[in-house]
Design a protein around this nucleic acid. Structure first.
Length: 737
DNA sequence: GAGTTTGAAACT
DNA sequence: CAGTTTCAAACTC
């Protein structure tokens, strides 16, 4: 069954088609991919959900069979990563530059979409010795100077560093996380995850923008570590994400979770085939998505034993994906990675599952999106197949939406909510170094645990349409689900860096719902559409920017790309040499706003207008007094808000403390008022009243003494009211009781 | 909340 | 490419 009709496929641009799964004819199962085809593919520029990340094949050099299987995964892209070391495997998926990728990758299994398919089993356990570094380098879109095909990325080993040329679409550095220490590979049963551990997760995303900053990344990998997957020619824009789950450096005791995912765009136009799903590597186990007939196509980086010395030996495996462009910038050996940046970062987040997960791949007919259902295994010993037998055995297409799709195995389904509604993920305090890293705006993927982790559980109800979470199969105690990261925390670059070293709760502004009425949310007028997102909890009318109208949406995307090939790329990018790092790619055309209102895209992005702007009467330049005034006002307003908040908090605390201290006296005697009436809400309301008086006095320029008097009088009124209500309540209670 | 203004996107 | 129209967000009242 065709997910996308041939007619539609024919009209879709390569950018769009690249995002789709591999067609059977192009990617027959078990057939190793050739590295030559990668150059032929165009970088996908389609918004996120429309694209389908492909998992690059992994291939341990030592094991011919595994290598062959790894190659098969990259048939469409021809990119293969084969590390020469033995134990470690990396899960690498490539995606288009747009960052709008399906949640899951798929391996080509059949012409029909596979619904509810279980994730591939773990391949041979791989160990990643410490002291290996994975470095993502920026990949330029233009042809590489070295004669490699444009966008070609190379993974190669250098010493113990793993270098990956990658890029974030938004120009943001790629984030790579590798465990400082690698736990010994767990068995296929996921036994290695027995102990609770401090685990850090870092997200690496390789985007497609040429102006991106160098990627970074990395942590040690054992000498035996291998980077498997479509290493060789990765198109710049196809290399999208690299994900690692990482154990905190300090923690050596527990199992380690390492996962590297490079999302790659698929150039196939067929949606039917299913590529390998992300294969999380848990505690030394390599999870690859595969069917019985199809070898694993995902690359997983196994964990090395934590006890392994982190010495940097020459034998260490350093895998690098050579940048097509500006290689020098690409390679920045940074151990802990932070990627943030301007524009629309594309990150993926990996969150470990506490219990044995089971992931089911879901492919929705008519949609090129891949969905993952997470199913928490009841017992640790359950294999993916056992957990969700129906999915594994029945690759048949299900016409229903992901939410509708089967099965009893699903333990946790997620309601649809606005992507940005999920604002934060609270890391498990101290005990877990789990880090959720995302960046602003769009196209992020989240790998979330199927099991209810305390720190993220509240957010599991805020997932996008069609999202179903289930633990990854074979992950043992750790399960993953891939979700658009936008639904999770969005973090600025600085915040990301902070996360790299500590568990911090980050907040981000949710995307505003659109209010489109005439565009059907299929034109760039619609911010949701422009950002490559589905409308969700928007106020739009006659919205077509959803799964129900995927074909129309694809056509609209094509139309936009026809008009402007970079329509879905961030408008704020890196400027010329010597200019600010951020500038509007096209420049604004403001005429009346002076570029000091949010009508101006430059001002809205909080950047100066540049030489390419065609604005009239621009006041949005560095030395502009108007701009400075605005900035000062804004700063003052912000400070004022902060002060008020602090004052309110302090007042509330003081009042509560005061009332608490006086409570015993009040309540001890018979007939005294119950202190329980002074709740937090009451205290806060009291603070509001006091603050209001303070503001009123301030606005009327009252002397301080008078202001204080007004505040005290208000406080007295508040107390009287509290006492009055308390007395009344007590009286009522006495009567009724 | 309704109406106006604004500039990007879309169209010609 | 330029001019015009459409559109939705930003802004004002």
């Amino acid at each position: 069954m065709d997910v996308v009709s041939p007619d539609l496929n024919s009209i879709l641009p390569d950018e769009i088609m690249d995002t789709e799964a591999i067609a059977m004819e192009e990617d027959p199962p078990n057939e190793p991919s050739s590295s030559s085809t990668l150059s032929e593919t165009e970088p996908a520029q389609v918004p996120m959900e429309t694209e389908v990340p492909e998992i690059v094949g992994l291939c341990p050099a030592t094991t011919p069979t595994q290598k062959t299987q790894a190659l098969t995964t990259s048939t469409t892209t021809d990119s293969t990563l084969c590390s020469n070391s033995s134990g470690t495997q990396l899960l690498v998926t490539s995606s288009s530059s747009s960052g709008l990728k399906p949640l899951t990758t798929s391996t080509t299994q059949s012409s029909s979409p596979v619904v509810g398919q279980t994730l591939p089993k773990l391949s041979a356990p791989i160990t990643l010795p410490a002291n290996h570094q994975l470095i993502l380098n920026k990949v330029a879109v233009s042809p590489a100077a070295d004669g490699k095909p444009p966008g070609t990325a190379v993974l190669k080993q250098e010493g113990q560093k793993l270098l990956v040329t990658g890029l974030s679409k938004t120009g943001q550095p790629l984030v790579l996380a590798l465990p400082h220490t690698w736990s010994k590979p767990a068995t296929s049963q996921g036994t290695g995850d027995g102990k609770a551990q401090t685990t850090q997760f870092k997200v690496v995303t390789a985007g497609a923008r040429t102006d991106l900053k160098p990627v970074i990344g990395v942590q040690a990998v054992s000498s035996a570590s291998q980077l498997l997957g479509s290493s060789t020619p990765l198109q710049a824009q196809q290399l999208k994400t690299v994900q690692f789950t990482k154990k905190t450096p300090v923690s050596t005791a527990g199992p380690m979770i390492t996962k590297l995912i490079i999302t790659k765009a698929l150039n196939n136009k067929g949606l039917t085939s299913q590529a390998a799903v992300q294969a999380p590597v848990v505690t030394g186990r390599v999870l690859s998505q595969t069917t019985p007939s199809t070898p694993p196509r995902s690359i997983a980086v196994g964990e090395s034993v934590s006890t392994v010395p982190q010495s940097i030996s020459s034998s260490s495996s350093k895998v690098a994906i050579s940048p097509l462009k500006s290689p020098s910038k690409a390679v920045k050996p940074v151990q802990t990675v932070a990627v943030g940046g301007v524009g629309q970062p594309q990150f993926k987040t990996i969150i470990p599952l506490a219990t044995q997960p089971n992931v089911q791949q879901i492919q929705v007919p008519g949609s090129r999106f891949h969905y993952v259902r997470l199913v928490t295994a009841t017992t640790g010993g359950n294999t993916p197949q056992t957990a969700s037998p129906s999915t594994n055995t029945n690759p048949a297409i299900q016409p229903a939406k992901p939410m509708m799709m089967n099965t009893a195995a699903v333990r946790m389904s997620v309601p649809i909510v606005p992507a940005q509604t999920v604002k934060q993920v609270v890391p498990k305090p101290m005990t877990s170094a789990t880090q959720v890293v995302t960046t602003s705006q769009t196209q992020q993927r989240l790998i979330m645990p199927a099991t209810p982790l305390p720190q993220i559980q509240p957010n599991l109800t805020n997932l996008p349409p069609g999202t179903v979470l289930a633990p990854a199969p074979g992950a043992g105690s750790m399960g993953y689900a891939v979700l658009p990261a936008q639904y999770v925390t969005q973090l600025p670059q600085s915040a990301f860096v902070t996360l790299a070293s500590s568990s911090v709760i980050h907040h981000s502004l949710p995307r505003k719902p659109c209010n489109c009425t005439k565009s059907q949310c299929l034109k760039l007028y619609c911010d949701c559409f422009a950002n490559g997102e589905f409308c969700n909890n928007c106020n739009c009318v006659n919205c077509f920017n959803n799964l129900d109208h995927e074909s129309e949406r694809l056509k609209a995307i094509k139309a936009c790309l026809d008009r402007n090939p970079v329509a879905f790329k961030p408008k704020i990018g890196k400027g010329k040499e010597g200019e600010s790092d951020r500038r509007h790619s096209k420049g604004c055309n403001c005429k009346k706003s002076g570029c000091l209102k949010n009508y101006c895209e430059c001002y809205e992005a909080k950047i100066m207008c540049s030489s390419i702007c065609k604005c009239v009467g621009c006041k949005n330049f560095e030395e502009s007094p108007e701009r400075k005034t605005l900035m000062h006002l804004a700063d003052a307003a912000e400070v004022r808000v902060q002060q008020q908040t602090a004052a309110k908090t302090k007042l509330s605390s003081q009042i509560s403390d005061l009332l608490t201290r006086t409570t015993p006296a009040i309540t001890s005697g018979g007939g005294k008022l119950p202190y329980t009436f002074v709740t937090k809400e009451v205290a806060e309301a009291t603070c509001d009243c006091l603050l209001e008086q303070a503001e009123k006095a301030e606005l009327t320029n009252q002397p301080q003494a008078l202001a204080e008097r007004l505040i005290l009088e208000e406080f007295g009124r508040c107390l009287r009211r509290i006492i009055s209500f308390a007395s009344k309540a007590k009286t009522d209670c006495s009567i009724n009781c």
